[in-house]
Design a protein around this nucleic acid. Sequence first.
RNA 1: GCCCGGAUGGUGGAAUGGUAGACACGCAGGACUUAAAAUCCUGUGGCCAUAACCGGCUGUGCGGGUUCAAGUCCCGCUCCGGGUACCA
Length: 887
Amino acid sequence: MDYNFSEIEKRWQKYWEENKTFKTPEELTNPKKCYILDMFPYPSGAGLHVGHPEGYTATDIYSRYKRMKGFNVLHPMGWDAFGLPAEQYAIQTGTHPSVTTKNNCDTFRRQIKELGLSYDWEKEINTTDPKYFKWTQWIFIKLFNTWFDEKLQKGRPVSELKVPEEIKKLGKNEIVKYIRSKRLAYYDNAQVWWCPSCRIVCSNEEVLYDGSHEKCGNKVEKKNLKQWMLRIPLYAERLLTGIDKLDWPEGIKDMQRNWIGRSTGAEVDFSIEGMKEILTVFTTRPDTLFGATYMVIAPEHPLTTKITTAKYKTEVGEYIKAASLKSDLDRTDLAKEKSGVFTGRYAINPVNLKKIPVWVADYVLMGYGTGAIMAVPAHDTRDFEFAEKFKLPIVCIQDPYVTDPDQKKKIIAGRECWTEDGKYINSSDSSTGIDINGLNKEAGIEKITRWLESKNIGKAKVNYKLRDWLFSRQRYWGEPFPVIHWENGEINVLDETELPLELPELEKYLPGETGESPLANSAEWLSITDKSGRKGRRETNTMPQWAGSCWYYLRFIDPLNDNMMFDPVKEKYWMPVDLYIGGAEHAVLHLLYSRFWHKVLFDLGIVSTDEPYTRLFNQGMILAYAYENEAGAKVSADIAEELDGKFYNRETGAELRQIVAKMSKSLKNVVNPDDVVSKYGADSLRLYEMFMGPLDITKPWDDKGVKGVFGFLGRAFRFFSNPGNIVSGNEDVEILKGLHQTIKKVEGDIENLRFNTAISAMMIFINLAIKKGKVTKDTACTFIKILSPFAPHLAEEIWFMIGHEKTISFEPWPEVNEEFLKEDNFEYPVSFNGKLRFKIGLPVSMEKDEIIKIVLNDERAKKWLATGTLTNIIVVPNRIVNIVIKN
RNA sequence: GCCCGGAUGGUGGAAUGGUAGACACGCAGGACUUAAAAUCCUGUGGCCAUAACCGGCUGUGCGGGUUCAAGUCCCGCUCCGGGUACCA
């Protein structure tokens, strides 16, 4: 019978839908549960891309497998539907973003359903649905009303925050200010990145290193705007230590660790000559204090202007002004040439009471540490560069652990920078009584930190790179903040009962050039008056797209609940997410933000686990072939022509190079899943996505490859659909062995998400079955079961054809019978000096001595034994024989 | 610069320190067909040898090392991909 995939696939998709086959079990008594989650997509207008089904197929196979293993499975899908494209489209055409969003979601849903993915569609969510974002707003209110207790390392309700007596004395205003300074969400003037093209602020994370906006590629600028910020650094330590116990790819864990950027060191107070102010610096190398020959203060530092002496006022003023006009980008770009000016002021080095000059330079950033540093040019490359340029003294204080005598000499003379370990020299002072000479780095840091603490001029300190999270956008299509700014300066969040706060209808979606959100245009929505007549204005910014995706995995548990975010009983049952698959592009931001919110919710007793995602896996990107001409210019894929393995430009005849590149409209190398489905069927698409290679690597799509898996499915279908091939009686031993090897391999590979080798194992079995010509019904049933998670439509069809009436989806996964895997003989590879020479079949139970005897007496061994003297024989039972011959 | 990955036939890739190249594509030859497509069968890392077998040499980016044995472990590089950007 022909493999009519389109008819088969339609039939079973309809069956699953009508029978609600994949409805999540309601009873929560089964101790075996599995929550399997995909990173839900942003439904773009372009529709599904072949990259989407890669992760979705992987989780689907895993879900179907777990159901067959007797697990209660939660496997949902939804839409991360707030975002710029729908809003841009609204600006251009006037179409309301909700209309665009709905259309796009419909397309995505249709496409996804055509892949035969076993989602429970009753759990579908959409971040733009007021019933959903009601809870996003609700979480924001929680963040606003939470402070972080550093002692307990825990978020607590603001109602439990004790205001210090000295603040209470200062009156109501100061109390409010104090509380504001503690809330996890706060509203403040912030220097922010502004993208003039998108007319939106961006978080630090969204600005690429070349100073362009991640979303649109245009250059961003600095702006001072009032914005909502979240104090994620307070959770830095917990976010960092939490990483250790996660079953995530090590690379992603490293990226999160680097992003958090913990560094230990000390804060040291420097007194300023002629002033009572203190200049505090953060350093990871307090041990190098004796080598501090100058100081640098950031241009934005509050003390910079103050400490500048009259003589240097103009120069420093100009420098500060120039620095403020430069973006961080320019400051980074100019990294090769350091700039700076002297303030005229001196500070006192606390270890030896020497006067050292204070400079202003923009290589010191206000946003990290204290915004000022002690410069140790001999042992810090940046300081070294700066000191060389401005002829500042370089004092080496460490005899370096280096072997090259010339290099050693240079370092000690201060002509080369040494940042590694060494023995201290020049590091004692009788007037202050500190001496670390002779110690190494570790001991030096320890001793000098204790000395600083005892003198009360410094303390051990931990610093993080992680900064406050800029949490507002000047956009229409996002969650409105449930916030009112009153005319007297008070800021309130709405009462939970007033949620959701929905978006108003607008005529114009264009944001203002100055950073005004389009919501400011809606006068009616904007203004509000309370019972006592006090006037207020709603917050016009909206939340960034991260907001909805930060907690969506929680809503999937109970998406229709109108009274609660979710039923805690259900949350306790399903959480944490057991397997989470998505692209590595979310390695830092989404996953870090999401973990942060989760930890806050955990502290408030809202969720029952400390981490949301137990096991994470990143699928690799799918690329496609593209073409370029001799000069390296890209040529559109539709004018490339293949001839005898070479590629030519169809129009000019010039030879082209085939390269691998990201799919893009301009290269015309985008593969549309719909086309693949109509040509080969969803099962083939699913199988090919998995067969291409390991799930986590980047790999190129090759249409020819689909033919391979299509052929496999066709052969399997034709074989099992022919009643003459399915026989009764005892099964052939080779088939039994092959079958059980396959079950074992497929099971192990699914657990480890190695679907490519699982598929190849099934191909091997089908090749064997076809060679043998027939199998028993038991064998057919068993094989179809293990194939079913991969090619569910085809499996259901055959399952039905060989006489079953119910879906295969909940059939128990076959057990491996080790009996069938036992071998009587093992074919030993016999090598001489590591080189394979011949093979010999021997019983698996044979003793080493016996094996050696037989091998040495083998006719074929003689030739090699004659080449030298036998010195050693290694026999690894049931693995290898290696004979060592010396000439 | 720093931190992570990676490099295996013409291609995608497979290989608990133990038979390198499973499986698939492509290609070549054959069967079926008037023909093509589809399907089926056979072969397929490179080099050498042979009438044909039997066979030999070589081979996992490069250079060293450990080991009876290295694609796999260690040291030193090269190239490619991802992340990051003066973080004191």
